[in-house]
């Protein structure tokens, strides 16, 4: 084995074992929060496509300026935001005595692996309930019947060892009329 082969072969093997393409997807809108105040909201997730093995993308985060985290995740029946007992209240005002009820979903998608750049609609029909440990009032986007529409952008990087995806920072808490 010559020197070139001795160098290239291990790198090739390493690349095959751990090399990945990483995609980051993101979209932003400004819309009223659960108090009716317009806020910036950012939706984002990543997908890793390894050279060997299946691609993975299972969870999207929706963060709102001055607000709380909403998680849309792959489940058997689609990409769903599952409400938490003690935290989420349905639009109907029904109290949450059980856990895991649906608070929203990505429309027309069975998995985040199906989602690429372009328009994406999601629903949200819960409002959060603050508690004595909340350091600021809990807010989501306003719960409503009609879906929110995001325009999703895609970016791609490639790495020999894989790389933790660079996801957008939390939207800054800037509000009109100084409301927090």
């Amino acid at each position: 084995m010559n020197r070139y082969t001795r160098t290239v072969l291990p790198l090739l093997m390493l690349g095959l074992l751990s090399g990945c393409a990483t995609y980051v997807y993101q979209g932003a809108i400004t819309a009223p929060d659960s108090d009716g105040v317009p806020r910036k909201a950012v939706l984002y997730w990543s997908k890793t496509d390894p050279l060997l093995g299946a691609p993975k993308a299972d969870m999207a985060h929706l963060r709102i300026a001055c607000g709380a985290l909403m998680v849309y995740e792959n489940r058997e029946d689609g990409v769903v935001f599952r409400g938490q007992a003690g935290r989420d209240r349905r639009m109907s005002g029904e109290p949450a005595s059980v856990d895991g009820f649906e608070c929203g979903r990505l429309l027309g998608k069975r998995s985040l692996l199906e989602v690429g750049a372009g328009p994406l609609e999601l629903t949200l029909h819960c409002a959060p309930v603050s508690n004595e440990f909340s350091v600021q009032k809990l807010r989501y986007l306003k719960a409503r019947e009609q879906p929110y529409r995001f325009d999703i952008r895609e970016s791609k990087t490639w790495s020999l060892f894989g790389a933790v995806p660079e996801l957008p920072p939390p939207p800054p808490c800037e509000t009109p009329a100084g409301k927090r």
Partner: peptide
């Protein structure tokens, strides 16, 4: 509801594979 736990598995895409 007497159990009192909210348990969530969150499948995170770390951008890496295997031991990494």
């Amino acid at each position: 509801p007497m159990q009192g736990w909210v348990i969530r598995d969150r499948v995170v895409d770390t951008g890496k594979v295997w031991l990494l």
